[in-house]
Design a protein around this nucleic acid. Structure first.
Lengths: 239, 239
DNA sequence: TTGTCAATGTCGCATTCCCGACATATTGTA
DNA sequence: TACAATATGTCGGGAATGCGACATTGACAA
């Protein structure tokens, strides 16, 4: 989907929201009240879109690009909470207080983002029960996703988590080629490590293992996933 | 708070919901439509309230007692997702599909639970924007809680997680005694291990360490937490 | 082409903590 | 009181994986 020729910010924001499932039914006036900023980032790869405090009172809608929501600890280690794609909401989802240490970093070469104040968003929700219900579903999904990540982390070892991640990725974005699947690879081993809570070295090692076992094949641009990996979560029996 | 003399299930359910923050504004008719079951459990300690499938389409409200939301893997290992107390909502929060492997197990000697269908609940929400907003806040809090658990698990070692857990517990339920805090202890080391994702032995060991270090003092009934533990998350410097 | 930087590949040691095994202590119950 | 069942305490070996160090490869720009 390419955006039409858009002359100014105002028209852009209408176009952005109208094409989003959650906001498609809103009137011009409502959109005008809600979306007070349309933020464009000709952001370089690796550039942060927002930091701690900004995030407190805003919800963001990613219109274009890929970003990662990350959190760092004191030592500088990074966990990737989530990867956001076109159409995803992020930011202070569902809460409006307390400290948040997350930041959003662009992975793609460009990212375009709209944002709204939480209070404005809540206002829209309370006046549009249908949108509210959809938003409930969205929150439920988010909740389930993170709960799933949590149990994965507890129950599974790194290898299983990597395989589960590859399977999810394939399911979400892969295209079938013969008996295999291809996924465009915009993530480094470092990123993947952050996503499955491991280290770069371990990810590299396991990717190599999976390749020599014949389950995947990869370079820096794409990953080819053999169907033998699908639904495979156990480690091979040791000899 | 003791419940008044209640003669029948119908009166009970009115009383239960009226005394809950989220439902206090509902009319009799609305409550009647919503809460189609009032489930009483003279449940023994350790008895499961519901299993997988039951949970799919219901939201539960805990009126009395303490329960744990747990999930098991194939090997029988247990993670405790959450501990629920009087007034808490649990079940298929925010989602109405897919498989859920959780179950709810009583920790206290008795538990009383109401439940409603998700569709009925959604109906109430869409007709009562105020309740919907409160429910958004609730979901947001839940989301933040689990995200916090997740980052804790990634960034902190077992000792730090245990200390963080004790601090949380103190903050939530502790009462001050001199310079210390007392928490009624209804959890076994096994339970605590499940909550902070560790093992019984490790928890026992660390609890003993903390006691010899003078930070806590405990028996099976209560835990005395010295103020020296508050805000302490780092391990002592090794000699 | 060459130089630079980021990403990937490989190795081995160190550490954390799981896990089995078994002892002791406490609680509930006949 | 005695017995069973559950909870707590203690120890040591071993597996998973973190982590530093360094080599190699690939991408991009001058």
């Amino acid at each position: 989907m390419n955006s039409p020729n858009i002359q100014n910010t105002s028209e852009q924001k209408f176009w952005y929201l109208r094409n989003h499932k959650l906001f498609s039914t809103l009137s011009n006036a409502e959109i005008d009240d809600l979306c007070i900023i349309t933020k464009h980032k000709g952001a370089k790869k690796g550039e942060a879109i927002y930091f701690g405090e900004d995030l407190q009172n805003r919800i963001f809608l990613l219109k274009k690009g890929i970003i990662k929501i990350v959190e760092h600890n004191d030592k500088g280690d990074e966990v990737i909470k989530d990867i956001m794609q076109k159409g995803d909401l992020f930011g202070a989802i569902g809460s409006d207080d307390s400290i948040n240490k997350e930041s959003a970093v662009t992975i793609s070469s460009e990212a375009i983002v709209c944002s709204f104040r939480i209070s404005d968003f809540e206002n829209i929700l309370s006046k549009n029960p249908d949108i509210a219900l959809q938003y409930f579903k969205f929150l439920g999904l988010k909740l389930k996703k993170i709960e799933n990540k949590y149990t994965n982390l507890v129950f599974k070892d790194v290898r299983s988590r990597l395989i589960a991640f590859l399977n999810d990725w394939t399911a979400a974005e892969g295209s079938k080629v013969g008996f295999d699947w291809v996924v465009e690879n915009y993530l480094t081993h470092q990123d993947i490590a952050g996503l499955i809570c491991s280290t770069r070295q371990t990810v590299t090692q396991l990717m190599r293992d999976l390749e020599t076992e014949g389950h995947i094949k990869y370079d820096r641009k794409e990953i080819l996933i053999h169907s033998s990996l699908l639904a495979k979560t156990e480690r091979p029996i040791k000899s």
